[in-house]
């Protein structure tokens, strides 16, 4: 990130946040969370863990029961309008009028932030263009595809140039090609200095995009660290090797191996183990490794471990 000459500050600071709904369900039981300015932060957790409730409170769509929320050092209880002006939200559900044109959806949103019409149209052209839906600007939103609707919500959230962009499942139901292009766009705006908080069920997405993350489960934070540190906790990884040997392959000492089919081998590798002896042993047996990949996403394995432990 570029050096701006300013001392680093938290884009978001949450202390002792609780939320109990009218039906008695306790969604948050006192969470503390800091997100540094400029970070790409992941907020992960199973369904019903409290992610959307947390986001709803930050954006004023849900009333908190207790606790404090500060956005760029502005306490939402003291000056919510200013705090709101710093935030852009891409919600999980489509929440625009299905009768309006795409261009109206984004320029109206700009209007609610007091942005003059000419500037709103200029930014609409930029963001709708960047996200590949400028040509569809006059289409009523109900005629847009699911992927276009998702991109429209991202463009809408960016029209007032928020310092903090919150994305709640932004790529849900989006095909992989489009998802990757959205990742590239999000990386670009993050590198330009915008703080991003992302919730997603695609852990590959979190691993690829986020520098830091928190895992929330049952209304409390159970892990809050950098992605790198979290991945270093992984004790064992399973690799899938594509091999060219149809013959019997002998066990390699120290590695747990399974022959899935004639050309595929699964090998469990512990954190302290190197892959070199494995390759050397296979080579000695005349087995060529054609390609190799992780069996499961690494973060996914950790996530299941952490959430599973908590639930046990």
């Amino acid at each position: 990130m570029e050096y701006t000459g300013r001392p680093a500050m938290n884009a978001l600071s949450i202390r002792g946040l609780t939320k109990t709904y009218a039906n008695g369900v306790s969604a948050l039981t006192g969470i503390d969370l800091d997100v540094a300015e400029g970070d790409f932060f992941g907020l992960l957790g199973p369904n019903g863990a409290g992610k959307s409730t947390t986001i709803g409170i930050i954006c004023s769509l849900v009333r908190k029961s207790s606790g404090t929320v500060r956005v760029f050092d502005v306490d939402v209880d003291e000056n919510f309008p200013l705090a709101k002006s710093y935030i852009g939200l891409v919600p999980q559900e489509f929440n625009f009028s299905v009768f309006e044109q795409a261009i109206q959806v984004v320029t109206n949103q700009a209007g609610y932030y007091g942005i003059p019409s000419a500037l709103a149209h200029e930014r609409a052209e930029y963001y709708l263009g960047k996200l590949g839906i400028w040509a569809k600007r006059h289409e009523p939103t109900r005629f847009l595809s699911g992927g276009m609707k998702r991109r429209l919500m991202i463009a809408r959230a960016l029209l007032h140039e928020p310092r903090l962009l919150i994305l709640d499942e932004p790529t849900a139901g989006v095909d992989i090609e489009l998802r990757r292009s959205m990742w590239a766009f999000l990386r670009e705006i993050n590198e330009a200095g915008r703080t991003i908080i992302l919730t997603t069920h695609y852990l590959e997405e979190a691993e690829s995009l986020c520098r830091n993350l928190a895992i929330i489960d049952d209304g409390r934070i159970i892990q809050n660290t950098s992605v790198r540190k979290l991945l270093s906790q992984l004790n064992c990884e399973t690799f899938v090797l594509d091999v060219d040997s149809g013959d019997e392959i002998d066990e390699v000492s120290g590695y747990s191996m399974r022959r899935v089919d004639e050309g595929t081998l699964e090998v469990d590798v512990k954190r302290e183990q190197s892959l070199n002896p494995l390759f050397a042993a296979l080579s000695t047996q005349g087995v060529n490794v054609l390609s190799m990949r992780n069996k499961a996403n690494r973060l996914e394995e950790l996530f299941l471990d952490l959430v599973g432990e908590e639930g046990a």
Binding site: S60, N95, F96, S97, V98, Y112
Partner: peptide
Amino acid sequence: FSAKFQRSIEEMLISPVP
């Protein structure tokens, strides 16, 4: 009510408009 039903009212609720 339509804005509530479609949740497009959230566009205003999250903005700083008084």
